[in-house]
């Protein structure tokens, strides 16, 4: 085990995969000379050269399309889209091409491509640069969607993504990049997709989250224990597709209460899907309606106080939990 930040764990995964498999290559905007906009790819250009660590023009749709073609041609591309905000320019290629080819060709083609992007608000980047669209990608059959919350998972899930025969949308919350944790040194360390992680055991309420919101859930759980003697269980989904609903349901059947936390908007969001599935599978075990703690229904404002008010907080989670008793 080595302690490192999440950005370093991601870099380790990329480095190991580049070494392990000669078909793997990376491309994206400013991943080379600039050192990566969040320093994830820093040093990889120097180590692996411009053939395998490619700086691209600003052309999101073009590079995703090229990644799809490279995958069809037998390579294992990782395309970095800088942030999820700019991934919207490539949404067509991801949704209409990458996610569909395997099905439409009746299994003749598949697109083994990893698409990495940073996500999330909280940095005062305002409305165009603060999106949390994990749930949007989870909406499309044919894609896998991964959202790590800590360094060990980030490494194990990213290495696992390179071994997948499908397009994996790998979404990293910017607030998590600096988050430290112990990471296994084993180069074969993988984290399976579709396995949620119980980060904290509890008996009174289940708080379900992913990516950045997991840390808020943990802080809220600590507050609940100290101030209110409420014992909260925290479930980190880790992947939204495939989704490990069994772990969530099992937890809810134990605690009889569920609160879903996400940075995204509530309306039409992924939390609604979770809530519906809990209702479908554990209705008789619920002592209160499922609650959702999400962003306010506004584009993200720049001003610090307004942004803070727009984003979910640990206080909001505590409040939602207490309202269930």
């Amino acid at each position: 085990m080595t302690e490192m930040r999440m950005r370093d764990a991601l870099r380790e995964a990329l480095r190991e995969e580049l070494k392990r498999d000669s078909r793997v290559f990376l491309m994206g905007e400013d991943i080379g000379a600039y050192g990566g906009s969040y320093a994830v790819t820093k040093g990889l250009l120097e180590e692996f050269g411009p053939e395998r660590v490619r700086d691209t023009p600003i052309a999101e749709s073009g590079i995703i399309g090229a990644g799809i073609g490279a995958a069809l041609g037998g390579l294992r591309p990782m395309v970095e889209l800088m942030t999820i905000n700019f991934s919207l320019l490539a949404l067509d290629q991801i949704v209409n091409t990458a996610a569909k080819l395997h099905y439409m060709t009746n299994g003749q083609m598949n697109v083994p491509m990893v698409v990495r992007m940073a996500s999330g608000g909280g940095s005062q980047l305002a409305a165009t640069h603060s999106h949390s669209l994990e749930g949007l990608y989870a909406h499309f059959p044919g894609l896998k969607v991964v959202c790590p919350s800590n360094p060990a998972d980030a490494k194990g899930l990213l290495k696992r993504a390179f071994r997948d025969d499908n397009t994996v949308v790998f979404i990293e919350h910017t607030a998590n990049y600096g988050f430290r944790g112990e990471v296994p040194d084993d180069p074969d360390y993988l984290v399976e997709f579709g396995k949620a992680n119980i980060l904290r055991e509890g008996s009174d309420v289940t708080i379900v989250g992913y990516s950045g919101s997991v840390h808020q859930a943990l802080r809220a759980a600590a507050m609940l224990e100290e101030q209110d003697e409420v014992s909260a269980e925290v479930v980190d989904l880790r992947t939204l597709r495939p989704l490990d609903m069994d772990t969530v349901i099992k937890s809810v059947k134990k605690t009889n209460r569920a609160v879903i936390v996400e940075d995204a908007w509530k309306f039409g969001g992924f939390g609604g899907e979770l809530s519906a599935q809990i209702m479908e599978r554990a209705f008789d075990w619920l002592d209160a309606p499922v609650a959702r703690v999400c962003s306010k229904d506004v584009p993200m404002p720049y001003n610090r106080d307004l942004e803070f008010a727009a984003l979910p907080s640990e206080e909001d989670i505590v409040e939602a939990v207490l309202a269930m008793f």
Binding site: A126, Y302, N303, L306
Partner: peptide, 14 residues
């Protein structure tokens, strides 16, 4: 990010 800004603090530099 203040109230007298061109967008009342909603937009910021960009």
């Amino acid at each position: 990010g203040r109230a007298d800004g061109t967008s009342g603090g909603r937009g910021g530099s960009m």
